[in-house]
């Protein structure tokens, strides 16, 4: 038996909106630790890892580890029917083939339940090694989204370079080139407006903008995004999910032959 009650139901709506275009089907894993998901996009270039820790739920009952295969587009369709202020409860029986999403309005005057069919999904959990990053950039998520959107109107790939000058996002296309440099800026009124660059060594990597743009659909989840880079390794683009967890997008770089 599984019963997870999330008072801030809008978080789950935002999570689904941020992954539904990247991943078609995925297994949600439920354990004592929390509600999690690891899945790759269909071309195996990007991977998404979500964790919503059990402590973040108002009520968290998971009698035994459960893996529930869901079509993320269908799950997003159902969660779209929840109001932004609604409390969302996820319910499933052990061995059952459906999951129920219950939506309660804050005043308890409207209660809805949506039952969705589960699916069998063959998926392998990949081991993600702990990495020491050469550079970690923390910046306003809206700024990062704007940069990815702007650059994708010029080119298909972005070169992200971190030096002691700052972080540079560059692209090149048929019509010309573009470079956007963001410098460290910690003298801001609000901490969410800060740009913080921790650099051990300069690093420069090339990525497909199509995926970066897809990751920025998580922007409504968090005011800040963290971009972690190491030479010849996947970039990690992380958005915190309130106080309860994170959504991390891993993107394989483009490398010289």
């Amino acid at each position: 038996m599984l019963e997870l009650r999330l008072v801030q139901g809008s978080l789950l709506k935002k999570v689904l909106e941020s992954v539904k275009d990247l991943v078609n089907d995925a297994n949600f894993d439920c354990s004592a630790t929390g509600f999690s998901l690891q899945a790759m996009d269909s071309s195996h270039v990007a991977l998404v890892a979500l964790l919503l820790r059990s402590e973040g739920f108002e009520h968290y009952r998971c009698d035994r580890n459960l893996s529930m295969g869901m079509n993320l587009n269908n799950m997003a369709k159902m969660l779209k029917c929840a109001g932004n202020d609604d409390i969302v409860t996820i319910k499933a029986d052990d061995g059952g083939d459906t999951v129920t999403f219950m939506f309660e309005s804050p005043t308890q005057d409207k209660i809805a339940d949506f039952e969705m069919k589960l699916m069998d999904i063959d998926s392998e959990h990949l081991g993600i090694p702990e990495a020491e990053f050469q550079a970690i950039v923390r910046m306003p998520s809206a700024e990062f989204a704007r940069i990815c959107k702007d650059l994708s109107s010029i080119g298909d790939t972005v070169v992200i370079s971190v030096t002691k000058e700052g972080v540079k996002f560059s692209t090149r296309g048929d019509i010309g080139t573009a470079n956007i440099v963001c410098r460290q800026n910690t003298t801001v009124d609000k901490p969410e407006d800060a740009t913080v660059i921790e650099m051990q060594e300069p690093v420069s990597l090339t990525f497909a903008l199509r995926y970066m743009n897809s990751f920025t659909k998580a922007t409504p989840l968090s005011n800040q995004v963290t971009i972690s880079l190491s030479s010849e390794l996947p970039v990690v683009v992380e958005y915190k999910v309130a106080e309860m967890g994170y959504i991390r997008f891993y993107l394989a770089p483009k490398l010289e032959e």
């Binding site: 790759m40 195996h44 270039v45 990007a46 991977l47 392998e124 959990h125 990949l126 081991g127 993600i128 090694p129 790939t157 090339t206 497909a208 390794l233 996947p234 891993y250 993107l251 394989a252 770089p253 483009k254 490398l255 010289e256 032959e257």
Partner: peptide, 14 residues
């Protein structure tokens, strides 16, 4: 010439 790597070449299968 740059080539798109697969994420599977970085992370281990169980």
């Amino acid at each position: 010439m740059q080539r798109q790597k697969s994420i599977l070449s970085f992370f281990q299968k169980p």
